[in-house]
Design a protein around this nucleic acid. Structure first.
Length: 485
RNA sequence: GGCCCCUUGGUCAAGCGGUUAAGACACCGGCCUUUCACGCCGGUAACAGGGGUUCGAGUCCCCUAGGGGUCACCA
């Protein structure tokens, strides 16, 4: 395939959600795989709803994911401008053409009239279609009314019979009956283009070869095809991927928790994990395989692996996957991600603390699922123990011989030089043997005493990080606490 | 409601006329073990329903049901 040109065309009215991110990923993979170009186009033709910070957020999200593009508002390119708001002249030009060729016409119907028509249709339980009152207004009259300042939209003179066949790379041939169409609007009363018009002009002018987007656009495609034909243009190839649905099978929205890539980022997910997970949602290599690097995805990606049925995203699997990537991630990188929070919590106040922080990070990184979980799971390394796990207390502090055992733990610490985790373990096992106890009988109380919890990473590593005096101090406090029980 | 798309376990997802219907997440056992996580071993769990076609259907066709999308001067 040559001259592959694809685009990702977000509307800057919200965040980059995972559905959009996946569409961007598919386009990116397609462009990179076939040596094509990816263009980023900002579809901000609705000036009332578009927001500059949304556009920035979307771009930031794409960058965070590591998706890059060849042409776009920031990147430049020969087919710009890449914001619809800056392409008004271009739309006007083709609008004029359509008007001249009598393929479009001015419509003066007011919002009230239209609303009444819709209401009437609803009452009679028939489907609403624009009635076409203005379709037959003569060009002269229309122009006269425009000159006199009357507000108007421009409508497409849609065919009233025949069919449009969308030849979709993912779904095959999909047929639409033109009788169901009405004369849809091309230009709003403010002169701005509507989506279906702008997208056709842009995709053509930007020489887009493949339109890869989500299924929500499939129903719009026949209108767009009609427009391509009216303008005498060739068609791009279309490929409509299925949508990503929320766990309750409904369309993604804010009420479903984290759905935007920024939220995933802030919640401690790694971009490579999100990319990997998203790639597997709605696409399959047919191989029995879960982990894919970007390069491997590029190697294997193809449109025919894209699924036709909607996919429900599953946080559990994303988390599982993130945990794997996190375990392998470079510690410096994770430390940097945690830096601000750790600083705020006072975990980095001096260089001794900083070393300790790094050690904790190393210990926890392979066993948590998200980045911030390191701080949450490791809080006891930095903060004083304020409470002990309840069940653990009964089991390890509240037994008959608990105090005696705890005293042994204390003396063990006092007698050790804390040289290494291995040595510490050796000493503890020796002590247990001398006392005719199982090592676990010493291990569990110490764990509870120094962490307040019954589950931690390996005890001796934890002890080494806390250090001798801190262990002694914590065990002493725990003894006091146990006595009070 | 009309039109369009979709339908394999709770979720993702192989399968493309003949399989004991993969695998992964989750879940449940077991092993490992100082707990947790990891890892390893094992298990529960699916072809939406009904008609065809065929020697034979998860795979092809039709109908029904369910889900999703779309029908804006939103994109």
């Amino acid at each position: 395939m040559d001259n592959i040109r694809v685009r990702f065309a977000p509307s800057p009215t919200g965040t980059l959600h995972i559905g959009g991110a996946r569409t961007a990923l598919f386009n990116w993979l397609f462009a990179r795989k076939y040596n094509g170009k990816l263009v980023l186009r900002v579809e901000d033709s609705d000036i009332r709803r578009s927001r500059e910070d949304s556009a920035r957020g979307i771009i930031e999200g794409l960058r965070w994911l590591g998706l890059d593009w060849d042409e776009g508002p920031d990147a430049g390119g020969d087919f710009g401008p890449y914001r619809q708001s800056e392409r008004i002249d271009i739309y006007s030009q083709y609008l004029k053409l359509l008007l001249e060729q009598d393929q479009a016409y001015y419509c003066f119907c007011t919002a009230e009239q239209l609303a009444a028509e819709k209401e009437a249709a609803r009452q009679s339980k028939s489907d609403y279609k624009y009635g076409g009152h203005c379709r037959h207004i003569s060009k002269n009259e229309a122009e006269e009314r425009i000159r006199s300042g009357e507000a108007a939209v421009v409508r497409f003179k849609a065919p009233t019979d025949g069919v449009v066949v969308v030849n979709d790379l993912i779904r095959g041939e999909v047929e639409f009956d033109n009788r169901l169409l009405d004369d849809f609007i091309l230009a709003k009363s403010d002169g701005g283009p509507t989506y279906n018009f702008a997208v056709v002009v842009d995709d053509h002018c930007m020489a887009i070869s493949h339109v890869i987007r989500a299924e929500e656009h499939l129903s719009n495609t026949p209108k767009q095809i009609l427009l391509y034909k009216a303008l005498g243009w060739g068609l791009p190839q279309f490929a409509h991927a299925s949508m990503i649905l929320a766990p309750d099978r409904s369309k993604l929205s804010k009420r479903h928790g984290a759905t935007s890539v920024q939220e995933f980022r802030d919640d401690g997910y790694l971009p490579e994990a999100l990319i990997n997970y998203l790639a597997l949602l709605g696409w399959s290599s047919k191989e029995d395989r879960d982990f894919w690097t970007r390069e491997e995805l590029l190697e294997r990606f193809s449109l025919d692996g894209i699924s036709r049925s909607p996919a429900i995203y599953d946080m559990e699997k994303l988390s599982w996957m993130n945990g794997h990537y996190l375990a392998q991630a470079d510690s410096e990188r994770i430390a940097a991600l945690l830096h601000e929070d750790a600083q705020r919590k006072g975990y980095l106040s001096n260089s001794r603390q900083q070393d300790k922080f790094l050690a904790v990070l190393e210990l926890l990184k392979p066993r948590v699922k998200t980045v911030p979980a390191i701080l949450e799971e490791g809080a006891y390394f930095f903060d004083p123990i304020t409470k002990f796990d309840e069940k653990g207390c009964r089991k390890y502090f509240g037994q008959e011989d608990s105090l005696k055992i705890m005293e042994e733990c204390l003396s063990l610490c006092q007698g050790s030089d804390f040289e290494s985790a291995e040595k510490l373990e050796q000493e503890l096992r020796q002590r247990a043997e001398d006392l005719k106890l199982k090592a676990a009988q010493l291990i569990h109380p110490i764990r509870l005493a120094i962490s307040g919890r019954t589950a931690t990473p390996g005890l001796f590593e934890v002890m080494m990080i806390l250090g001798k005096s801190e262990c002694i101090q914590r065990i002493s406090s725990a003894i006091l606490y146990a006595k009070s029980l």
